[in-house]
Design a protein around this nucleic acid. Structure first.
Length: 245
DNA sequence: AACCAGGACGTGA
DNA sequence: TCACGTCATGGT
């Protein structure tokens, strides 16, 4: 039985970029502000985060704020919220609309996202410290498939595959996805080809994002790193042709 | 100066 | 179901 393609892609990405240490946390940035790997709150190789409910909620808030938005913009919003000690459900709900919107303005869509954060905070209060099911998260106004899966995977350490625009772009460019493939289909493809381990799911998603940022900006050119992996014959053919068994 | 960022919702067909 | 418009700031 052949090794799943996703596993080969994972190995290539890991070999090229090393562990990414997602999800970034403000506390990690504060604890380890100068270490190169943790410079922005990332904690590569350390899977002991999040360590409390405050960090879990911070991840959920970040997951909402980063919807269709660059993470650098989200960081400003998170810092503004932290300055008001509002990365906590009750405190966030205690902010008036204008204060909340002003704090998260750098992350864009600030009116919609302000409402989304309130919905999230109310949900969190009713959750009572339990691990939310996926369908419960999807029931929150403002939480769709990717955000729900991100919260499950990174905030609660559940083996929930996250699919994002980068995943679709990279796998699509390699010709591995059906043209009409939806979120759940892409998710199923990834799940089928990777070991069901939280660390693997976290790194898979983070590595794809890193790879896309480096190699898939703008017009999709050839993927020098992954094309040989996705088409195993390509490398050998270029090298002069070795017939595989 | 367009174009894009670690999407989701509301609407009409 | 599904395509399309909307939401908005900041970096390239």
């Amino acid at each position: 039985m052949a090794r799943p393609l996703a596993e080969a892609i994972y190995a290539a990405l890991m070999g090229a970029y090393d562990p990414q240490g997602w999800w970034p946390l403000l506390a990690v940035r504060g604890v380890n502000p100068t270490a190169s790997g943790s410079l922005r709150g990332y904690h590569p190789g350390d899977y002991s985060y999040p360590r409390d409910d405050a960090q879990r909620f911070e991840i959920a808030v970040g997951a909402v704020l980063t919807q269709n938005t660059a993470w650098t913009n989200v960081e400003r919003a998170l810092q503004a919220l932290q300055a008001r000690e509002a990365i906590e459900p009750a405190a966030l709900l205690a902010l008036d609309d204008d204060t909340l919107e002003t704090a998260i303005r750098p992350s864009g869509y600030y009116r919609v996202k302000a409402r989304k954060l309130r919905e999230l905070a109310v949900f969190w209060q009713r959750l009572g410290g339990r691990i939310p099911r996926r369908d419960e998260l999807l029931g929150i106004w403002g939480v769709g498939p990717e955000t729900a899966d991100s919260i499950r995977l990174y905030a609660f350490g559940q083996a929930e595959m996250v699919v994002d625009a980068y995943t679709r772009r990279i796998l699509g460019a390699l010709g591995l996805l059906a043209e009409r493939a939806g979120y759940d289909q892409i998710k199923a493809w990834c799940v089928a080809g990777l070991p069901c381990r939280v660390e693997v799911y976290q790194e898979w998603h983070a590595l794809l994002v890193e790879h896309a940022k480096r190699c898939h900006r703008g017009a999709a050119g050839a993927d020098p790193l992954l094309s040989a992996v996705a088409d195993p014959g390509a490398g050998q053919r270029r090298r002069g042709g070795v017939s595989g068994a």
